[in-house]
């Protein structure tokens, strides 16, 4: 059972091929955001490197949000294109859950944060039990202060990761006790973590049709916000 997972939700463009438990290959570019241009060539190189053709994939996965609206759409349109062309199922994975899985072995709660502008972060709270992570607060968008208030209510160790760290970790550290910043190389999105979740979902039968796979923007477009939806 082979899955090709795509993650273009943040500045990191990443793709991974996983066969059951075995990660066959992964590509991560954490440099310039030229996802639309480079994603397909990167996937092509990855497949060639591992000697597989795209036609041999059993499913296509995509990190479905939250994140950069444009980045999310590039990943989703690409994954849907593969799935529709080859008539294969899809799996979608939360950007935040995928980040949490980067440190599934943490002894405490994991709180991924993505910069959502306007002093807000996309975040969710995940509990690690040493083997996998479980979501305890659903993915949402909130003011950084709101998150700080919540974190202060928790006594256990709190691990913070994601692209929001750059902007907000200092503030969190100043105001919250027992908080830890994850090492940068583990604090960014990587498709292998999303693929781990994706393969589990496939085993649980939680695949979706390419037409139904949808993005989790969380935040409406600003026009909808102004219009009062």
């Amino acid at each position: 059972m082979k899955l090709l997972m795509i993650d273009t939700a943040t500045i990191v463009a990443s793709a991974a091929i996983i066969d059951e438990e075995k990660l066959i290959g992964e590509t991560i570019v954490n440099y310039e955001k030229k996802h639309s241009e480079k994603l397909l060539p990167a996937i092509d190189h990855l497949l060639k490197d591992v000697g597989l053709s795209i036609q041999t994939m059993d499913a296509f996965g995509v990190v479905s949000g939250p994140g950069s609206f444009t980045g999310l759409r590039i990943g989703m349109a690409t994954a849907k294109g593969f799935a529709q062309a080859l008539n294969k199922p899809m799996v979608t994975v939360s950007t935040l859950e995928s980040l949490a899985v980067n440190i599934y072995y943490a002894d405490g709660i994991i709180c991924p944060i993505l910069d959502a502008q306007r002093s807000q972060v996309y975040t969710g709270v995940y509990q690690a039990d040493g083997t996998q992570v479980e979501q305890i607060i659903p993915d949402t968008v909130c003011d950084i202060n709101e998150l700080i208030v919540y974190l202060n209510k928790r006594s256990e160790k709190k691990y913070i990761l994601g692209d929001g760290c750059q902007k907000y970790y200092k503030e969190i550290e100043d105001k919250v006790d027992n908080v830890y910043q994850v090492m940068p190389y583990l604090a960014m999105n990587r498709a292998s973590s999303a693929a781990q979740i994706g393969i589990r979902k496939m085993k649980e039968g939680k695949t979706v049709d390419f037409k139904e796979a949808s993005l989790m923007y969380i935040r409406p477009s600003s026009a909808e916000e102004r219009f009062g939806k």
Partner: peptide, 12 residues
């Protein structure tokens, strides 16, 4: 959106 979809379709 169209460009990403077209590239994926053409490749697959």
């Amino acid at each position: 959106v169209g460009v990403s979809a077209a590239k994926a379709l053409a490749y697959a």
